[in-house]
Design a binder for these strands. Structure first.
Lengths: 244, 244
DNA sequence: GACTTTTAAATGTCTGACAATTTGAGCGCA
DNA sequence: TGCGCTCAAATTGTCAGACATTTAAAAGTC
């Protein structure tokens, strides 16, 4: 791992990459302790602050964790699903907000991915998942709910649907797509009429999942996508009118 | 942004979080220049190395970029799809390798997500995408191809399929799932017989996409999933036998 | 033997300095 | 005027050394 050629990148970036490579291709295993900062500094022939910058880069990606005190130090971190969710959400949110991704594109991606889970969810759902979905539907039907709360409940509903597929890798992938959409969804003002429509479709999805009937759930989800796209277009049109 | 309470986290982590928050909720916009390290140090009442550690954390997430020299400094970075791909792949790869995700689970997730794109791909594919898919199929049929090269070509084929859907957000989400699977796929030794089978199914997928026939493509993809799962089970069984 | 104190190792932070790099302004020269 | 050269200023990158803080093991005490 001592490899550190005379390329034209920052030393701290090179060192971070060297350690990252060692972790990714298995030369360092989970919970293994890295040499102390002083030792790393000597190995790479750089100063301690430079090593520290490299370690902070890795810590930002949750590749390592550090502990103070005797027998502390930097350890290879087991990347948990929670940490992976978090990074996925941050990255997805920024990607959408910084690249002027249209509501249409983001919405299409989200529902396409979600449709991928629906059949599995109908097949494997537990009573718990179903109960969560029903509870969120009930919350969404409450009058006087703010738009933000309605959206948050929407996310929770879809999250439960995804989790019902019982595949943590799928849940991880979907978390980013669904949560990153929320800021875009929050731009929509939900009328009583549109809420009613959405709650109805949610109910049909839950019915399909409850009956282990993937086709019904998928078709309701597809209707929901069409309706959401419709709402999105209305918002964009209204915004365009206001701009003139 | 000067908020910096006396919580029990590292100063550099707190500062990184404060700046990250400012970027995420739009108080800092793309290409905006951050104050210099010296100014940030003064604002947050910490030393320059501490500020630098915070900035390196953000740089590791591609949230900022830095330039040396007069009128250099740290700038809010437009997160490109390429950078997002890269982070997604790194995270997904680590998640799979560190959490003992079974071949079955990863495979199911990958094909479920890919199935989400197939209908769109069949609808929107361009001649370019189709040509890429055909070229990879041709490469895969070459005798004497190493297992690694075969897998790489497999990834390229599926990547083209995903890109054919014409939705960059979908491509971004799928990149991680497909590429992270590669190390697991590389464990499989492909016999001439199994390659023939896979190439045949790839051909059927390409046929479906070419004919704008989503149903055909989806059904071929589904067969490919079943066959891949079958190969995976064989490898695991052989490995278990060897272990006894 | 159980509790307390010490000690050593490690990360976290600060200060101050110098090196490298980039841009713009000033200057000279034709 | 217009072109090119040099130089200064600003900023990040790196280094060295020091001190503070935290933690757990080792040593000491009752």
């Amino acid at each position: 791992m001592k490899i550190d050629s005379t390329k034209k990148a920052d030393l701290s970036a090179q060192i971070a990459q060297a350690i990252r490579d060692a972790i990714i291709d298995g030369r360092m295993i989970v919970d293994e302790r890295l040499p102390s900062e002083a030792e790393l500094a000597e190995q790479f022939a750089v100063s301690r602050p430079t090593v520290r910058e490299a370690l902070k880069r890795l810590a930002a990606q949750s590749l390592i964790r550090t502990a103070r005190g005797a027998f502390g130090g930097a350890f290879v971190n087991r990347l948990s699903y929670e940490e992976a969710y978090g990074q996925q959400i941050t990255t997805s949110t920024l990607l959408l907000s910084m690249n002027a991704v249209s509501f249409e594109t983001a919405c299409e991606a989200r529902y396409a991915l979600e449709r991928a889970c629906t059949a599995l969810a109908a097949q494997r759902r537990t009573a718990d998942h179903l109960a969560t979905m029903r509870a969120e539907i009930h919350r969404q039907a409450q009058p006087g709910l703010s738009d933000e709360s309605f959206c948050a409940s929407d996310v929770a509903f879809h999250r439960a649907l995804v989790d019902a597929a019982g595949n943590p890798v799928l849940s991880y992938q979907l978390a980013g797509a669904v949560e990153a959409m929320q800021p875009l969804m929050n731009m929509i003002t939900f009328t009583a009429r549109s809420r009613e429509e959405i709650v109805g479709l949610h109910g049909r999805i839950a019915d399909g999942v409850e009956a282990h009937d993937g086709a019904t759930a998928e078709s309701a989800l597809h209707e929901l996508e069409i309706y959401t796209q419709h709402l999105g277009r209305d918002v964009m049109a209204a915004r365009a009118r206001r701009a003139t």
